[in-house]
Design a protein around this nucleic acid. Structure first.
Lengths: 246, 246
DNA sequence: CAGATACCTTGACTGAGATCAAGTGGAAGC
DNA sequence: GCTTCCACTTGATCTCAGTCAAGGTATCTG
């Protein structure tokens, strides 16, 4: 069942080589990383790290999608981060994990044992610097999301999520066709609800409404076409051009 | 009107010396910082940085409280960060500011011109490392807040905010009296609403309700006493001991 | 093939919080 | 002392999203 697209073993062939925490490393530094890295795969639905657990590794998502979630005692859950390929997992300098990390799809991770990685960080400014930039980007994304959670309507929330996923895909697929964007939703309705602070019924209703109004086209339950990205952005409440990040 | 508690000019006397971005700097490094630093004061209500503006400085909050806010075209606003003394403002490596930064109370900032600070960061691992830790802390706080915004009830939101403010004060005032905590709210009802994703009427109603139920005591509109911190934490939905940061 | 399961949709009703509106209390200004 | 203003409170009503419930569809299993 786990058919990981996982056919490289050294960093130079790595699909996230130029975007992950190792992006700015030179050949020597990469060699040091090679020594402490190992790959792990996780099936969709599996928990990668439990909140409160000791973290003994950090690493990068190579392929697939993982999510960070917080859960209250009574079961209410909120997704607080979506980890895409090249995103970093774990926190140098902290013992215990603050959130659950779950594999939303099948996931391949490039892991580093925590202690050696921390040592390497202290001697390799390229890594520390890159990690700071990535963390600042994540902080911006988290704050962007706070606006979505705090002030947007259900319809705007769905549109916001779709536009984030669409934009991510757009950055991977050619940019010269901004006309119509096509992608598969990597999340179930329930996962979307957890991300958006909604119930899955509301998610379903709003997706149906956006479909009825022609903002999106649906084929099956997951295959989405955005005929007019500008229209979607308006529905999301992010007027026009304002670019924000995943 | 602006009576800044601002009676130091060199770093060794600085009240945030041990907690700000300069915390780990040694004497030599501090001297370099002294050369590029300058102080600015802002009155309550003043905007320190406008979203989209070129940022030509970064810096630390020395005293007072500032807030990061995002605003939609139709006027809906969401506060996405609360900056307390020692918190860092600005983002090395980015040109434009992503949010408005506003002085909630009178604020004193220790500013560094951006370019020299970036240069210094590249040559001073102590600063870069400290900034990474602070950014990771802020990211944790932002994600904690996402749970509040996405999944908590109005009453729980208010209790969460009060417990954050109480905990911050507790970390400044002596710890040996966990029995009853007293502080002044540094935010208007409207600012609380913007932070919590509520309306100011709902904030007012829930504060009244918590008062009526004996969870808090109010003297005037701003002076709060928490007779039983554990009770407040329960109301916030953060069961018992689970510690989280400002 | 029947039955189970996971994921999704839709409908009817409810309720928490928003909205609209009026009023209170205290400080500042004339 | 009176007015004005601002921050806040309280009440009445409305509405959006939650809750509860039923049903649909595709995939998997024995």
């Amino acid at each position: 069942m786990l058919k990981a697209q996982f056919d490289h073993t050294n960093c130079s062939d790595c699909p996230i080589r130029h975007r992950a925490v190792c992006a700015h490393c030179d050949a020597d530094e990469l060699e040091e990383l090679e020594d402490i890295k190992y790959y792990r795969t996780f099936e969709a639905g599996q928990t990668i790290i439990w909140s409160g657990d000791q973290m003994n590794f950090v690493g990068s998502v190579v392929s697939g999608i993982a999510s960070l979630t917080q859960t209250m005692e009574d079961g209410r859950t909120q997704m607080v981060g979506l980890l895409l390929p090249s995103d970093f997992v774990g926190r140098p300098g902290r013992e215990a994990a603050p959130y659950d990390v779950q594999a939303t799809t099948d996931v391949v991770m490039c892991c580093f044992r925590k202690k050696p990685f921390e040592d390497l960080m202290n001697t390799t400014p390229h890594i520390a610097h890159r990690l700071l930039q990535m963390t600042l980007d994540e902080l911006d994304a988290a704050r962007e999301w706070m606006l979505v959670l705090g002030r947007k309507t259900a319809r705007e929330k769905i549109a916001s999520l779709l536009s984030i996923i669409a934009r991510r895909d757009a950055s991977i697929t050619p940019k010269d066709k901004p006309a119509s964007i096509v992608f598969d939703l990597p999340l179930t309705r329930e996962a979307m609800a957890d991300y958006l602070g909604l119930t899955l019924e509301t998610v379903s209703r709003q997706i149906s409404a956006l479909k009825k109004d022609g903002v999106i086209l649906l084929e099956g339950k997951r295959h989405v076409t955005i005929p007019d990205m500008r229209r979607l952005m308006e529905e999301a409440g992010d007027d026009s051009d304002g670019g924000f990040l995943v």
